[in-house]
Amino acid sequence: MSQITWLGPKDPFPNPLTQADLDPSVPGLIAVSEGIYPGQLARAYQTGIFPWYSDNQPVLWWSPDPRMVLNPANFKCSDSLKKHLRHFCQDAQSEIHVDADFSAVVRACATSKRKDQDGTWITHEIMDAYTALHEQGHAHSISVTHQGQLIGGLYCVAFGAMVFGESMFSYETNASKLALAALSAWCLQSQVEMIDCQQETAHLRSLGAAPIPRKEFLEKLQTSINQSNIERPWTFNKNILACWI
């Protein structure tokens, strides 16, 4: 069995097509580092790798097989969610904001309690690294508000025409689904064909996501990150939800 690669500040990531799953006990773990070094997070995403670890652990870098993805056209909008969308769009005190307060969305994702999960993988180091990506124009937040108060949202990463979903939160019922519905609608409008969801969960599957082989994901990634048809900066509001109603 080969040893998991320890990365220094300038070391390249292993190729996920040839060097993933070096340890069968932790499938998808491709590398480890002491910290997240400058520029490393951007390189990871463009290679199909993401960090996922807890406090007091080294940084664990993953490229799972299969990979959970959402084709925006396959977003599942149930009848009950459609009803909620209609009400939300008609409510003058409800809104969706893009990149309005990235830090607030990340903090909310980090502190939201989740079923069967103790603690959070969104450490202070993660917050700092994704904030740096946001400042570079590669990480985005979608905020769902009511009466000016944040009630749900998500944050994601984007390179070229590839979007990587990171984390969602809800303070009110369906608020995170509203954010994902808005992101999916924007991706449809912008001809983004895939939202990376990383790992399979029943919740993501219920919203239309499905697993695909790692090889297929990586091939699509390399095609998508070189496309430049996405308008910058990202701008849309709740009217984009009309496509699901």
Results as ranks from 00 to 15, higher is better:
D55E: 15
Q40H: 15
I96T: 07
A158K: 10
S167I: 07
I225G: 08
A44P: 00
W62D: 01
G119V: 06
L7E: 11
S78E: 07
A185K: 04
A73R: 13
A31N: 11
P72E: 08
E125I: 09
S2Q: 13
T111W: 12
Q227Y: 08
M194F: 00
P9C: 05
V59H: 03
R114C: 02
Q147A: 15
R205G: 00
W6I: 10
G8M: 08
P9E: 07
Y130R: 06
N74G: 04
Q57S: 14
L133T: 08
V69N: 02
D101L: 07
M168D: 12
E231W: 13
K177H: 00
C243Y: 12
A110P: 08
A158I: 10
S78D: 02
L22E: 09
Q199D: 14
L22F: 08
C197H: 09
V192I: 15
I142S: 00
G48Q: 11
L7Q: 05
K82L: 02
C109D: 11
P12S: 14
Q40K: 15
Q227T: 12
A129S: 04
V106N: 06
A202N: 12
P51L: 15
T5R: 09
W52L: 06
A181P: 04
H138N: 10
D128W: 02
F159T: 10
F236H: 02
V157S: 11
Q19D: 14
T235P: 03
L22G: 13
I142A: 01
W52S: 02
Q149P: 12
G8R: 08
I230V: 12
S2D: 06
I30V: 08
Y53T: 15
M1E: 00
A100T: 10
W234V: 09
Q198L: 06
S224V: 04
T223D: 04
T173N: 13
N56K: 14
R67G: 03
E216H: 03
Q40W: 13
K177T: 03
S184A: 15
C77L: 00
S206T: 09
G137D: 04
T131C: 08
E166V: 10
I230G: 09
L204C: 03
I49D: 03
R67V: 10
M162W: 02
H203I: 13
V98W: 02
F75Q: 01
S206R: 01
D23V: 12
N56R: 15
G137P: 01
A132Y: 00
K177G: 03
F50L: 01
D118R: 04
C89F: 06
V157M: 10
D91A: 14
C197A: 15
T201E: 07
P12V: 13
P24S: 07
S176P: 05
W61L: 09
D128R: 08
V105L: 05
S176C: 07
Y130C: 06
P38K: 15
I142M: 01
T145L: 08
G119W: 09
N239L: 10
F217Y: 14
S112V: 09
K177I: 09
V59L: 02
F50P: 05
W186V: 03
E166N: 03
F164N: 01
P211S: 15
P213Q: 04
L204R: 02
S176D: 04
S2E: 14
Y45N: 09
A181R: 09
R214W: 08
